[in-house]
Design a protein around this nucleic acid. Structure first.
Length: 204
DNA sequence: CGCGCGCAGCATTTACATCA
DNA sequence: GTGATGTAAATGCTGCGCGC
């Protein structure tokens, strides 16, 4: 412990030894002893309580070691403690608290990443829904156009067998998006008015 | 193999310091 | 002066390695 930092923290052993009492120890209980914290006497910690804060240099040192490895073995703890002028217990506690902060930060970062991803997916979903609407409209137009062409060809040759195009199919049979199986619905191999339509839908 | 012990880590809580 | 926030420390518990 260097001179500069020596005054910055109080002696943990001296302090904690008098800070707590055992609530049930008097009964000689072998079961779990629930320790009860004793309210700290203002005069006991008094003005020195302020000194418990670690110095910037000590924190920097601890941060450096933490960045190398988040865990402590006994030897490492002793080494860091003697180098930074801290009690090994303080080093252990600092690392413990630091790990908690690190995990919280990590969770926070993951949350914001997931949130951003989620927002992108929402945008993409909206775009896809718009596209589906456009395609449905196009499909409807195409069906109307086909109906019109069939009706016109019926007027020209009403007894032509090849032109007997069946339009009694459900226009909404194409599935949830109105497009499912679309590629199988109509098969162009003849011509009506120069091209004939073959309704291939019942062969599927 | 089972047991006790010591140690490290974790979750939770408490106490204190600092700042708005 | 007070509430919110950050941080050091305490506590109780679990899991693991080790010696007996």
């Amino acid at each position: 412990m260097n001179q500069e930092n020596a005054h910055l923290f109080f002696n943990i052993q001296d302090h904690t030894s008098s800070l707590y009492t055992y609530a049930t120890s008097a009964e000689g209980e072998t079961k779990k002893k629930k320790r009860q914290r004793r309210k700290k006497d203002k005069n006991e910690g008094g003005a020195d309580a302020r000194k418990r804060k670690l110095s910037a240099a000590q924190v920097n040192g601890l941060e450096t070691y933490f960045s190398i490895d988040h865990n402590l073995e006994t030897q490492r703890k002793e080494r860091i403690a003697s180098e930074l002028g801290l009690d090994p217990q303080q080093v252990a506690i600092w690392f413990q608290n630091r790990r908690v902060r690190w995990r919280v930060k990590k969770l926070e970062d993951e949350y914001y990443k997931l949130k951003a991803t989620h927002e992108n997916v929402i945008v993409e979903k909206s775009q896809l829904e718009s596209q589906v609407l456009r395609l449905k409209a196009q499909l409807s137009d195409a069906q109307n156009e086909m109906t019109r062409l069939v009706e016109r060809s019926d007027g020209v040759s009403s007894n032509s067998q090849s032109s007997s195009f069946s339009m009694d199919m459900d226009p909404f049979f194409l599935g949830d998006f109105g497009m499912e199986g679309l590629e199988k619905v109509f098969y162009f191999n003849n011509s009506v008015n120069g091209m004939e339509w073959v309704n291939n839908v019942y062969d599927m």
